[in-house]
Design a protein around this nucleic acid. Structure first.
Length: 505
DNA sequence: GCATGATCATGC
DNA sequence: GCATGATCATGC
């Protein structure tokens, strides 16, 4: 490893001592990346160019570029810590066992959240399949001690002009590590099962297998199947990074109420949760309300069924720590007397302007389904119409359904928006018929209005020219806005995804 | 009975 | 005030 700072008394740090590395790192706080870069480029570094040159590292070549490939992470490594960025499997500071990670956070309505997932290390499908335990895995080498460097990303501002706000050593806490080990096993088991091509971020809780490749068409071989798989990396999910930020880096008033307590002992989290819910199986909604002393007023809440699920899990509020950290979304499912689900599953409205500019691989809806794990709480109506608890199920959309039917629906919707082919027809009552993909046209998903009412609209892309089937009948419609719409998963599809034990009476 | 369009209601 | 999750209403 080349380290300019070896020559510099002032900035010397001991690369075998984690605390020393952290202390040195903290001196970046308050400085912009550009300052770090300029300092390295124009100042001290030049005094050591000769020493560096001896090692064969071409400083001029690397630093001639105005920006850094790999972004702020490489910049900090090369310009501040003074070693050449590498993508080796071992830790950045080998002797200290410390991995350096530079990561952005952003402002949200309430406080701050991580801006993105944290990519940890590429998954080598062949090597990973040979690893016998988590403790000797490459992944563990990368995450057992990390130096996290955080900066605030603001829209319209180049990251190189952002300021380093926090620098802190981090080790996943013991409770989290149990879940991370479970996630790791799940990913490795899928690879060993010859299904690396079916990996999805929604499979797991905190640790994800995110796609990583220059092009969406990149593929890798896998050990137990001839099917090529997308290149993937282990990553901490955005939701988990948000937790780290709000719990350890800038702790505030956000409190987390865990489902699993240390005293509950070691167990598979999802099995544990499902068993806890199962204890209340067959109880009616009314019985559950009485059991958990739900007030008359609360019984009218639309989230009553979800609220009861949290009570069954021993949570006082309507948020569970593990669910928040894993970005798990709770959905209640009601099966009718006839064994069918009446309602389709809705998602947030899409923004026409954004949608029309997106590609499937990086789309808001595609990414949401790709990354989200759902927790279904299933109720079933008895002959008198009273709901009884059936149980619960964790679910994420299978790879083939997402990349097949959902993609088809998404792409035709985007194209319709792009080309203004909503094909409006307005009948005598003012009901608007549109041209978006219908439930009857696709096995998995469809598009429907989803707003306050039909006058609740979002802007259309500039220059959109709506084609109208009946000439001149615009009414409330103009060329610049359209009734809010969202993607929905078909009720019949959701039913097909439910565990058989809920369907057999 | 179901598909489609429309709207409600709570919580943040 | 509005996003989000949940549900209604009508016509075929």
């Amino acid at each position: 490893m080349v380290r300019y700072t070896e020559c510099d008394e002032k900035d010397k740090y001991d690369d075998s001592n984690p605390k020393n590395i952290e202390d040195y790192g903290k001196k970046m706080i308050g400085h912009t990346f550009r300052e770090l870069y300029e300092t390295a480029k124009d100042g001290e570094i030049l005094r050591f160019v000769n020493a560096v040159r001896e090692s064969g590292y071409d400083y001029a070549e690397t630093h001639a570029r105005p920006e850094f490939k790999g972004g702020m992470g490489n910049l900090v490594e090369e310009c501040y810590f003074g070693y050449k960025a590498n993508s080796h499997a071992e830790a950045d500071f080998t002797e200290a066992g410390v991995e350096l990670k530079v990561t952005p956070y952003k402002r949200v309505k309430k406080g701050f959240s991580a801006k993105e997932r944290l990519v940890l290390t590429m998954i080598n499908y062949f090597d990973v399949a040979k690893e016998t335990t988590f403790e000797i895995s490459h992944l563990w080498m990368k995450i057992k001690l990390m130096l996290l460097v955080w900066y605030l990303h603001e829209n319209g501002v180049n990251d190189i002009d952002a300021t380093v706000d926090y620098v802190q050593l981090f080790t996943p806490p013991a409770d989290d590590l149990e879940i991370i080990k479970g996630d790791y096993k799940k990913i490795v088991d899928k690879i060993k099962d010859g299904r690396a091509h079916e990996l999805s971020e929604g499979d797991t809780m905190y640790l994800g297998a995110c796609t990583k490749g220059a092009k969406g068409s990149d593929r890798r071989e896998q050990p137990f199947s001839v099917t090529l798989a997308k290149p993937r990396a282990f990553s901490f999910k955005n939701s988990y990074m948000t937790y780290i930020l709000n719990q350890y880096i800038r702790p505030g008033k956000v409190t987390y109420e865990p489902i699993l307590r240390a005293s509950d002992g070691l167990t598979d989290f999802e099995d544990y949760v499902m068993c806890k819910i199962d204890r209340y199986q067959q109880l009616s909604l009314l019985e559950l309300c009485k059991l958990f002393a739900i007030s008359e007023k609360q019984r009218k809440a639309k989230n009553l069924e979800a609220m009861l699920a949290f009570r069954m899990l021993g949570i006082k509020g309507n948020h569970a720590e593990e669910f928040e950290k894993a970005g798990i979304v709770v959905k209640t499912i009601r099966i009718d007397e006839n064994g069918k689900i009446k309602e389709n599953m809705s998602f947030p409205c899409f923004n026409f302007v954004d949608l029309s500019a997106e590609e499937w691989e990086n789309s808001i809806f595609g990414d949401y389904l790709r990354e989200t794990r759902f927790f279904f709480v299933v109720y079933r109506k008895d002959f008198s119409g009273m709901l009884h608890l059936c149980g619960s199920q964790f679910w994420n959309i299978p790879y083939a359904d997402l990349e097949g039917d959902v993609r088809t629906v998404w792409e035709s919707t985007r194209d319709i928006v792009r080309e203004g082919r909503m094909a409006i027809h307005i009948d005598a009552k003012g009901t608007v018929t549109n041209n978006f993909p219908k439930q009857s046209q696709n096995r998995v998903a469809h598009v429907r209005p989803h707003g306050r009412n039909r006058e609740d609209t979002y802007p259309l892309p500039e220059g959109t020219c709506l084609q109208v089937t009946q000439g001149g009948v615009y009414g409330w419609v103009d060329d610049t806005r359209y009734t809010k719409q969202s993607f929905w998963l078909n009720n019949s599809y959701i039913l097909s995804q439910l565990n058989r034990r809920f369907l057999l009476k």
